[in-house]
């Protein structure tokens, strides 16, 4: 009896491994292997044309003295610090509006989500046109209302803001997640709050916000990671200006800098080092958000 159940268990395990084997192979070949290789390369001066040789921490030292590295960090943080909270706020606002038991909620939801499914290249090309300082529709609308018309993407100080404006068009994904979060809030909690004399603001502050804080938290983490891997828009929209990353590198996002270093300049060792620094920054920021989350994220039930 015992032996048979052992045999069955072994059979089940073999089957399990067989089913997940595509991922195991893929993990080793496409993730684990490259991860180790990338760490090693970050200590070499590899250029694809000549064999790599080990140069110790030289790439990392070089980074400290590389103005492009600091520019790209600045551009990325500037974009993240403004766009992540702004987009979350807009997404939350839209989700709350859609959660008011409105008719045709699905239609509105579809409309707001639509920009998220479009190819980023086409979206960037479109916004290049919308943001065109002389003929773009945005500045013409601003002119119509008597507002100043910034030189989007042309002057360095109006480069990152252009990307931020464009990012608001893509809040649909976060909106859908937040809307689902809002719909999961038990109605009984609101009823209890009303009995306790809570008004609209109190209901939002003490019921809605705590209940959806895990979802807000998730979006915050994703937003930070997203800013560091922001590439396509930066590449397509920056390509028309300066040396391909906006005037005075004002649109040199971190991921774009990695691409330029690794694949235009063929400094593949240096690009790997840049990527590892990015990995650690993202990891540190995520941990920071996680650590602080116990102060403001509420999880129902026994989950921590």
């Amino acid at each position: 009896m015992k032996r048979q159940s052992n045999a069955l268990r072994r059979r089940e395990a073999v089957l399990g491994y067989a089913f997940i084997s595509p991922w195991i192979i893929g993990f080793i070949v496409f993730v684990a292997g490259p991860l180790v290789a990338s760490l090693y390369l970050s200590f070499t001066d590899y250029s694809l044309l000549q064999p790599a040789h080990f140069i110790g921490v030289q790439n990392y030292v070089q980074m400290v003295h590389d103005p492009d590295f600091w520019t790209s960090l600045g551009v990325t943080f500037y974009y993240a610090i403004v766009s992540v909270p702004l987009d979350l706020l807009v997404a939350l606002l839209l989700a709350i509006l859609l959660n008011q038991k409105v008719r045709m909620m699905r239609l509105y939801r579809t409309l707001f989500y639509l920009p998220c499914v479009l190819p980023p290249v086409a979206v960037s090309v479109l916004w290049n046109w919308i943001l065109n300082p002389s003929y773009g529709i945005l500045n013409r609308l601003l002119a119509f209302f008597g507002l100043p018309q910034p030189q989007w993407l042309i002057t360095p100080q109006w480069t990152v803001p252009a990307y931020i404006v464009m990012s608001v068009w893509g809040v649909g994904g976060a909106m859908i997640i937040l809307l689902a979060g809002l719909q999961d809030v038990p109605q009984s909690l609101y009823e209890a709050a009303v009995i306790d004399g809570a008004g609209v603001w109190a209901k939002f502050r003490y019921v809605t916000l705590p209940m959806i804080s895990p979802v807000l938290f998730f979006n915050l983490v994703m937003g930070i990671i997203g800013a560091f891997s922001y590439f396509t828009q930066a590449y397509v929209m920056g390509s028309g200006y300066g040396s391909g990353a906006g005037v005075n590198n004002a649109g040199l996002f971190y991921a774009l800098n990695i691409y330029i270093q690794g694949f235009s300049e063929l400094h593949m060792g240096y690009a790997s080092a840049l990527a590892w620094v990015m990995f650690f920054i993202v990891l540190a920021l995520t941990l920071l958000v996680f650590k602080s989350s116990s102060m403001w994220v509420y999880y129902g039930g026994e989950r921590e």
Binding site: R9, E12, A13, V14, L15, G16, Y17, F19, I20, W23, I24, F27, F30, V31, G33, P34, L35, A37, S38, L41, I225, F228, S229, A255, I258, G262, M268, A271, S272, A275, W276, M278, F279, V282, L283, T286
Partner: peptide, 28 residues
């Protein structure tokens, strides 16, 4: 299926979502 290491492997799978693709780009 139950097999040894299932939980750890699944955690590993989920954690790969956190790796920025840029880190893997050059070696790939």
């Amino acid at each position: 299926f139950r097999f040894p290491g299932r939980r750890i492997l699944f955690m590993l799978l989920l954690s790969t979502m956190m790796i920025p693709s840029q880190v893997l780009l050059v070696p790939q």
